[in-house]
């Protein structure tokens, strides 16, 4: 009798464990998709507030590098102002606004939580859906790409950092247009790997890598990094290119979130094509 009671107590403990463990696994797997369980992340009201307070204090330590980045970017933007140009030949100067429709709009945001030392790193921003941030928007810094928005709450947003195993960025070599996908393989946050470039493509150290127009997240020609070295395996038909990332993830503080104005049109067209093809396949 005693044994039976002992056994029941023992197994109740194990059943409780299984119950809680299944709960944890459900959370774990639901977290892998966009738009899910958005209360259980650092964008919720409590943790967002905690991180915001913390960042108000620690921001003072990164002010210097943040200022340097912003000043550098100001200089670059200033050089694009009309006043920085001299009109050389008035005859051919045409301006027609109907040709240039706006495709991307940018909003700035402050990073209130960031990490670089884990295998999967996340960033929390101080803006959310009330400020127009939506999931799957791209995030860039003055120097290069940063990541993709994952979840949003009214006032905060979480971002999948590029330093995450689920993030792949379509990138190309600027000088010849060959494209591949850029991934982070863990370890040093300064380096990523560019895959799928055929091995007959000639490359040298210092070649510039930028984003392509294929991705629906980043605009074309956003700086990604430069070729650092080629880690080749014999008989491999693709390069394994080690890329020095232009974004310094360890000192990031201010970023831009990119809204693609034409995204919904592009998405619905692409989905329509995919559906039509699937229908054809099923018919055969």
């Amino acid at each position: 009798m005693n044994n039976l009671i002992n056994f029941l107590i023992r197994s109740w403990f194990f059943i409780l464990f299984l119950f809680l463990q299944i709960g944890a696994l459900v959370l774990l797997f639901s977290n892998n998709s966009y738009h899910s369980a958005s209360y259980f992340n650092s964008a919720n009201a409590i943790s967002g507030r905690v991180y915001e307070t913390q960042s108000e204090i620690t921001d003072y330590f990164t002010l210097k590098s943040a200022n340097a980045d912003l000043a550098e970017e100001n200089a670059r933007l200033r050089s694009n102002l009309p006043s920085a140009f001299e009109i050389t030949d008035r005859k051919f100067f045409v301006k027609n606004d109907t040709i240039f429709a706006q495709k991307y709009s940018y909003t700035n945001a402050k990073i209130i939580n960031n990490s670089t030392n884990r295998r999967n790193n996340y960033i929390t921003l101080n803006k959310g859906s009330l400020q127009g941030i939506q999931p799957k928007m791209g995030v860039i810094s003055p120097n290069g790409i940063v990541g993709v928005v994952k979840d949003v709450s009214p006032n905060y947003a979480t971002v999948l950092s590029f330093l995450h195993k689920a993030v792949k960025v379509s990138a190309k070599i600027r000088k010849n247009g060959y494209f591949g996908s850029l991934v982070w393989e863990g370890g040093n946050p300064d380096f990523g790997y560019l895959k799928d470039i055929p091995s007959y493509v000639k490359l040298v150290k210092g070649d510039t890598i930028v984003t392509t127009s294929y991705s629906d997240i980043f605009p074309e020609d956003i700086m990604v990094g430069v070729v650092e070295s080629l880690d080749e395996k014999p008989n491999d038909s693709f390069h394994n290119i080690r890329v020095k990332l232009s974004t310094n993830f360890t000192t990031l503080s201010y970023v831009y979130v990119i809204k693609d104005v034409t995204r919904s049109e592009r998405d619905s067209l692409e989905n329509k094509t995919i559906k039509a093809v699937e229908k054809d396949d099923n018919g055969n």
Partner: peptide, 13 residues
Amino acid sequence: MDVFSDTLGIHTT
């Protein structure tokens, strides 16, 4: 821990 580090389910397990 999971809520604060966006690693839902991992620390819990």
